[in-house]
Every structure is written in structure tokens, then in C-alpha cells.
Design a protein around this nucleic acid. Structure first.
Length: 542
DNA sequence: CTAGGGTTAG
């Protein structure tokens, strides 16, 4: 891993300060009011138990069952409240949570630890941080679940300062608390920060990372395309004996795939053992697709059907993508039909989008248009994007213009290549010559290309779609790539040293990485095993 | 049973 940077979320100093002065943030709380639990009659208890059993089986009916429970005259216990509140949290139903709250208060159940935790959680995820806080402040000192539920509320509210302050002052800071922060960073696109906080977690030695930690960390690494860190994280998992269950293996497969290291993904996938499900298979299918191994994806899909695993919507989306990338029109049409007829999956807009993409890439514009006409829903931006993209490579400008207008109509704020300078969005498409500063942009562009060539960059034309035969056309089309245009504009429009952020494009990343991978020793990497001693730059004490 | 996780691809 590169040398640690100072994380904006927290620093060693803030943590050290917290350690020196442990205190609970916010106003001091009044002593918890201990209510004597009522003597419940046996009959009521039995009735309640039968309701809670059903609530457990059918969480989506939990609130209705709770209602039945009340009407039956039985007395809800803390389990019934917890289950019902859990449902409120899942459904973001603040009103129901508040009703349960007042109900519990009347019955003297509102001070029960489990009920309190359920209330804090429900209020927190519903965005009622103040209500959550009130319950918390009258609640149970040092209950880890209560602290973490509230922490989650601060994370959801999005106020970084409040979140940091609460986290730093936490009494019961444990693995879940750290995981909450790391996941929050990932959710908010702060991937480097997520890794910095993970480092901080290791250095604090407060608690050990678990598989949830690693899922978030590996996810951050994936977004960064940082293979070296991904290898380290994988080795860490093996070394610490962290269980590689379905989600963690999916994260690993995904990480290797997105880092352009398909061999690593295959290695993880083939060593799954019993810990596999549709999602791990989906991850592997997507990995093959993203790395240009469409046939492998289709082979794997066939294997999946033989194995007896039931594919889901995402499986088909991925497989259809593989078909369109590989130009397997027949196979794609076959899959689409099998999806509905054999598996009874109703195609959603994304599936139709894949089919449009499939036909477009093959240059079958009439079939694509027919598909758009027969979709039962309004075509979304993805559909128009596929059409625009294909029109660009197939030089079908007339249809491209129409589709472009539809795209802007469908997603006015979703521009493929745009850059924001002083609050103004500038949009670029490949080969664009319409921008007002075009002279300057193109001058900057040729300078960029020159500097890139000096740095050893050779345009890789093998990824430009098939039917442009002329090498020169291909190369210049790459050179005028929309993102490069945007960067060139960024360079001439900002002061030196201003960071320029262009939305990440993982496929491009992979392309750039692949050339590097093939020529490096990484292709002969030995994958981390259970007794792996892969160098551990951060973790030397745990 | 109450706290933390990922997955389509353009």
C-alpha cells in the first residue's frame, strides 16, 4: 500500500484526543427509568409467542401481525416490538415506528433494552435523528447496538462533522462502528478515505476487522482499480482466516475483474467450495464480460444451468451483455426467450436495453428500433445511449441525431462526457467540434497527445469496434475521445494545480491496465493461499 | 430479534 495519507474523516490526533478524554457526546442523560416488567399471564405469553413466530417467518407481515396480536388481547413482549420495529426500519415507516413507540410507552415497554434499540434504529434510518437521539439519551449506557444504530443515523443524515464527532466520542466503538464508517465512505465515493479509515482501524487496535470490513474495503479498492492493494486485502483475508462467504467472494471476484485481472477472479471462483450462490456466479459472469471474454461468460452460463443454480434477473442482464459485447446475436435472442419462457422472468427495462444494445452493436438498427417499439415501458436513457453509441461507431448520423435528442429528453442531467467548470456543465461527445472554445481545446489536445506519446502512450485501436477498417480513422477517433476533450477543456479552463475530476470509466481503466498486465510479471502471480505470507505493509501487529 | 456489507453496464 502507498504511504498513508492524512484522512479527512479522522486522524490519529483526533482519535488520540478522544482516547485521552473519553466522553459521551451531547447533553448528559437523565438516569434510565427502570420499569418493573409486568407479570404476564401464561396464556398471553403463549399467544404472543405464536404471533412472534409468525412475524419471524413473514417479516413483511410483521406490522399486520402485531396488530392482530393486540386485537387478540395478548400482551406484546419485547420480541414482538423488536420485530415490528425492524419492519418499520426496513420499510422506512416512521409513522408506524412512532405509533409503536407511544404504544410501548403506555405499556411500560419503552424502556426495555431491545425495544429501545429497535426504536433508535427505526428512527435513525427513517431520518428522525432527533427522535432516535431522545430514545438513546434515556436508554441504556454502553449498549453497542444502540450506539451503532445512532451512528448509522448520523451516517444516513450525511453531516460529516456530526458523524465524525459522534464516532470519535463513542464509548462502545467496535468492529461494527468502524464498518459503518468505512461503508459510509464507500457509499459516498470516498474510496481512498475508506482505505485510510481501514488503516486507522488497524492502527487503533480497538477491534479486529471482520468479513464485513473486508467487503467494504475490497469494494473501495475495486473502485480505485488498485490491484496491488486488492492482492494485499485478499492475502489478509486468507492469513486471518476470515470466512469467504458469498458476499466476500463476490467482492473479491469483482475486484479482480474490475482490476483487469481475470485470472485472479477465476482463481477465487474456482476455489469457492460450497460457499457459492447466484450472486457469486453473477460476479464471475460479469467478470468475463468486462474483460472481453464473452464466450467464457456464455460457457459459464451453460455450466450454471447444468449445475442447477437458478439464474435471476441480474444473471440474464449480464449474459445478454456478454452476447452484445461478443456480437452473439443469435445466442442473445435465445437467452432472452429462455429467460421469459423457461425461468418466467419478466424482462425489465435493463433487459430491453441489453437487447437494443445487442442489435445496435451488430449494426441491426431496424431490429433495435423494433425492440424499442415493442418494449412495454418508456425507453430510458440507457436505451438511447446504446443507440447513440452504435450510431457513432456505425456512422449512422441521422438516426444518431434522433437518438441523441431522445437521450437528452430522457436524461437532461445525465451527460456522457461533461465537465463542470464554475458551476457550468460543458458537454463533449467524441469528435465534437461545436464548443465555443474549440480552437484552444484542440490545441491543448494535440499538446496532450504529444506529451502522452513522449510518456510512451500508444493508442490501442484493438478496442475500437470492428467495422472501421482504416487505422488512421480509428486512431484519430480515439484521440478525440470525449473524455480527453473534457480533460483538455479542464486544463485550459482552470488554474494550474486545480484537480480535474472526470467521472470514472472502469472499462477504460481496464483497457489501460491490460497492456500493463500482459507485459508484467503479474500474470504469473501466485494467488494468496490460507498460509499466505504476502507482504503486509500495514498490518504487522494484529 | 435490535447495529455494519455487493452484485448489470452504458
Amino acid at each position: 500500500m502507498p504511504p498513508p495519507t492524512v484522512p479527512f474523516f479522522l486522524t490519529s490526533t483526533t482519535l488520540a484526543a478522544a482516547a485521552a478524554k473519553p466522553q459521551r457526546p451531547g447533553p448528559p442523560s437523565p438516569p434510565a427509568q427502570q420499569q418493573q416488567p409486568r407479570e404476564a399471564r401464561d396464556g398471553s405469553r403463549d399467544a404472543c409467542a405464536s404471533y412472534t413466530a409468525r412475524m419471524r417467518l413473514n417479516p413483511q407481515l410483521a406490522l399486520r401481525l402485531f396488530d392482530h396480536l393486540l386485537r387478540s388481547g395478548a400482551d406484546p413482549d419485547h420480541v414482538a416490538y423488536a420485530l415490528a420495529l425492524g419492519r418499520c426500519a426496513r420499510g422506512r415507516d416512521r409513522r408506524a415506528a412512532a405509533q409503536l413507540h407511544s404504544h410501548a410507552a403506555k405499556r411500560g415497554a419503552a424502556s426495555h433494552r431491545r425495544v429501545c434499540n429497535g426504536l433508535i434504529h427505526a428512527y435513525a434510518v427513517c431520518g428522525s435523528l432527533l427522535d432516535a437521539r431522545k430514545v438513546f439519551d434515556r436508554g441504556h449506557e454502553g449498549d453497542a447496538v444502540a450506539w451503532n444504530s445512532l451512528l448509522r443515523g448520523y451516517a444516513a443524515a450525511g453531516d460529516v462533522n456530526a458523524l465524525r464527532e459522534f464516532f470519535v466520542g463513542m464509548q462502545a466503538r467496535d468492529t461494527v462502528s468502524w464498518n459503518t464508517i468505512i461503508a459510509w465512505c464507500v457509499e459516498n465515493g470516498e474510496y481512498e478515505e475508506a482505505i485510510a479509515v481501514f488503516r486507522e482501524m488497524l492502527a487503533s487496535m480497538e477491534c479486529l476487522p471482520d468479513r464485513v470490513t473486508l467487503v467494504s474495503v475490497i469494494s473501495a479498492i475495486t473502485y480505485l482499480g488498485a490491484l496491488a492493494q486488492g492482492l494485499w486485502a485478499h492475502a489478509y483475508v486468507c492469513r486471518k482466516g476470515i470466512e469467504v462467504e458469498e458476499r466476500l467472494s463476490s467482492a473479491l471476484i469483482n475486484m479482480y475483474s474490475k482490476c483487469g485481472c481475470i485470472e485472479g477472479a477465476v482463481h477465487v471462483f474456482e476455489n469457492l467450495g460450497a460457499q457459492m450462490n447466484v450472486d457469486t456466479w453473477n460476479a464471475m459472469l460479469a467478470g468475463f464480460t468486462a474483460n472481453g471474454c464473452s464466450e467464457k461468460a456464455l460457457e459459464l452460463f451453460a455450466r450454471m444451468e447444468i449445475t442447477g443454480l437458478v439464474p435471476n434477473k441480474i444473471t440474464f442482464n449480464t449474459v445478454l451483455n456478454a452476447c452484445s459485447h461478443g456480437g452473439f446475436v443469435e445466442e442473445g435472442m435465445g437467452c432472452f426467450e429462455r429467460m421469459t419462457k423457461v425461468y418466467g422472468i419478466e424482462p425489465d427495462i435493463a433487459h430491453y436495453g441489453c437487447m437494443v444494445d445487442l442489435f445496435c452493436r451488430a449494426g441491426l438498427f431496424d431490429k433495435a428500433e423494433k425492440m424499442i417499439q415493442m418494449m412495454p415501458m418508456k425507453p430510458d436513457a440507457a436505451v438511447w445511449k446504446a443507440l447513440v453509441g452504435a450510431c457513432k461507431t456505425h456512422r449512422n448520423f441521422e438516426l444518431g441525431r434522433k437518438a441523441g435528442h431522445m437521450l437528452i429528453e430522457a436524461a437532461p442531467n445525465d451527460h456522457a462526457g461533461s465537465i463542470e467548470i464554475d458551476g457550468v456543465i460543458h458537454e463533449f461527445i467524441s469528435g465534437d467540434k461545436s464548443h465555443s472554445s474549440k480552437e484552444d481545446i484542440y490545441e491543448m489536445l494535440s499538446e496532450m497527445c504529444q506529451q502522452l506519446k513522449v510518456a510512451g502512450y500508444v493508442p490501442d485501436t484493438s478496442h475500437v469496434l470492428l467495422d472501421i477498417d482504416d487505422e488512421d480513422v480509428k486512431e484519430s477517433s480515439l484521440a478525440l475521445h470525449s473524455e480527453k476533450l473534457a480533460i483538455a477543456f479542464g486544463l485550459i479552463s482552470t488554474a494550474p494545480g486545480t484537480p480535474i475530476r472526470i467521472a470514472k470509466n472502469l472499462r477504460r481503466r481496464i483497457m489501460l491496465l491490460r497492456g500493463f498486465l500482459e507485459s508484467s510479471a503479474l500474470t504469473s502471480t501466485r494467488w494468496p493461499a490460507a498460509d499466505s505470507s504476502y507482504p503486509a505493509p500495514v498490518d504487522n501487529k494484529l
